[in-house]
Amino acid sequence: MNQTINSATTTEPMISLSGVEKWYGAFKALDNINMSVAKGEKIVLCGPSGSGKSTLIRCINHLEAYQKGDIHVGGIMLGHGSKTIDAVRREVGMVFQQFNLFPHLTVLQNCMLAPMRSLGLDKAQAEDRARTLLERVKISEQAEKYPAQLSGGQQQRVAIARALCMRPKAMLFDEPTSALDPEMVKEVLDTMIALAEEGMTMICVTHEMGFARQVADRVIFMASGAIVEEAPPAEFFSNPKHERTRKFLGEILGRH
């Protein structure tokens, strides 16, 4: 409701979830999730597949509905009405595993669409902003191409630029490198690292433990829809407390 007042108080976390629960029918996908992300904080969410980590970040911009609990983003309480949902979506960018670029639009048009339609920028402003951000993800020379003409890594960087064109306060990454060929993972991670260094608030669902070590302020481990453990990366990797965390780390690090 009172967005201006709330966002002015800096002590308030950028994103907070309290008591969030979600069911798919009888299956409990999220179980009493409590977490708080400060402005500028970088969180890496990991866990075995089906542990609810993607579901969790998809609740934050209400791509998934949840049945219980509260989510606040940038001082806005995410209700179930379209007004607050839209307000939250304007503040939070999301990057998907499958990029989800609009195939019928050029790279530039992909980046211009949302600022024009939902922020009300005119064409020149939107183009200016899009070109600046494409420059930032080092892909400005591809602006006139269609997504299918780009490599996976390039597409994902465009997707990051497209999300940034909304000037979001926070970014959600849903396994951004999982669909990429190995040689393209680095270019996307480098883009994310640069973004982190600029102070963006980020929640990343990823299995890139190198990225977690380098960038994350906290690593959160989930299993069976619940948060099992959270710790700074140094502690998380060297001294995991829970058996399930150890087992997961053994599996995922053993692979590399």
């Binding site: 939070v92 989800n100 670029l101 339609r117 939902s118």
Partner: peptide
């Protein structure tokens, strides 16, 4: 994913 991306960009 197309609809989801559009929603995430707060398109109505």
């Amino acid at each position: 994913g197309q609809t989801e991306a559009a929603k995430a960009l707060s398109l109505g």
